[in-house]
């Protein structure tokens, strides 16, 4: 048990170092941005910020209640950043918001591991210590991944998760000049033509780091078109299993989106309401690849996705049809 504790402590020290360095990086950006007031005090407020899950025993309006809470949380953070950094651009503020999220995740990992270590020592619970020792390599890897993600958001580089947004942006600009507008907050819709079909392409508003509200946007577009949509095609990055190839593009059905629930629920509901077939195309990548700068093999998948969309348009729709295409993911470093 002593050896296990020693190993856990050694790795915990590494996590602590990463959490401290992450905090320092966020503080540097806050100071460079000309923050009003004490940057450390501001950051500490958001490092341990929490959202209490809505009651799940009573499922009535569960998704709407969850969405409401998530909206409040996001608006509070955006307002907080706007108040202390009014002169910073919107996109830089969005990137900073994600940097704070990554620093928060690291801080949480550190505090949870320390909690279980101290609890195991206090109660002399060797099973708890053994479990922690066995889990430590994965926990350290997760912490390192969050730490690496900070640099991507600091410099505004596209991340692996943005492949859906990249495919959507490429599609929006492939058929000449598409008509683009902000359909809902932080979400852009472009109308373009391809293979004789009218495409409504949706993605988050870039190049700042945001995922937008794709569910709300799909709902609005389909309602505006009174349900006259022949297909909804979603594009998103998906976690690969160990041994699978990064950047592999595969197809399926259902709403390809990894949100906590509300956005996915809206897409499924609207597709069901008007009986619209819901297709999805996913690009395989690991968690590390999803939140660190986009690898070349993932970036190259954008063309393969468009080939799959072309095939779907030809095989499953006819000329003159309306198709909604949604590029899901964080759009940091990707405009429209």
């Amino acid at each position: 048990m002593m050896l296990w504790i020693r190993n856990i402590k050694m790795r915990l020290a590494r996590i602590e170092r990463l959490a401290k360095e992450a905090k320092k990086k966020v503080l540097d950006v806050l100071k460079k941005g000309g923050i009003k007031g004490d940057p450390e005090k501001f950051l500490n407020t958001y490092l341990q910020f929490f959202v209490i899950d809505p009651v799940r025993d009573e499922p009535t309006n569960l998704m709407r209640r969850l969405e409401h809470l998530l909206d409040i949380r996001q608006k509070r953070m955006k307002l907080g950043l706007k108040q202390v950094l009014p002169d910073l651009g919107e996109f830089t503020r969005n990137n900073l918001e994600i940097m704070i999220e990554a620093a928060r995740a690291l801080d949480l990992i550190y505090r949870i591991v320390r909690h279980y270590l101290m609890l195991g020592q206090k109660t002399n619970n060797w099973i708890l210590i053994m479990q922690l020792e066995l889990e430590m390599p994965q926990i350290v890897k997760l912490a390192e991944t969050y730490y690496k993600a900070l640099d991507a958001f600091k410099s505004g580089k596209p991340v692996g998760d943005g492949i859906g947004a990249l495919a959507a942006a490429t599609l929006m600009n492939s058929g000449g000049s598409a008509i683009k507008k902000e359909i809902v907050e932080d979400t852009i819709m472009g109308v373009t033509e391809r293979k004789g079909r009218k495409l409504y392409v949706i993605k988050a508003k870039g190049p700042g780091g945001t995922v937008g509200k794709p569910g709300e946007a799909v709902k609005k577009v389909v309602e505006e078109l009174k349900g006259k949509v022949s297909r909804i095609i979603m594009i998103d990055a998906a976690l690969k299993l160990e041994g699978e190839k990064t950047g592999e593009v595969i197809e399926g059905v259902g709403a390809a989106i990894g949100d906590p629930g509300p956005e996915k629920f809206k897409i499924e509901s609207i597709a069901m309401k008007y009986s619209i077939p819901l297709d999805s195309i996913i690009i395989k990548e690991s968690l590390e690849e999803a939140i660190t700068p986009m690898r070349k093999e993932i970036s190259n998948a954008a063309e393969k996705v468009i080939e799959k969309i072309d095939k779907a348009l030809e095989e499953r729709t006819k000329e003159g049809d309306i198709v909604v295409i949604v590029g899901v993911g964080n759009t940091v470093g990707i405009a429209q």
């Binding site: 580089k157 596209p158 660190t292 993932i298 970036s299 405009a335």
Partner: peptide
């Protein structure tokens, strides 16, 4: 740098170029 950012003139046809991709190798 960000994807679709307008860049310098194309040395071949003088049209405006854009950032097409940003990736890690």
């Amino acid at each position: 740098d960000y994807i679709l950012k307008p860049e310098k003139e194309c040395p071949k046809c003088k049209a405006q170029t854009r950032i097409f991709k940003i990736y890690d190798v």
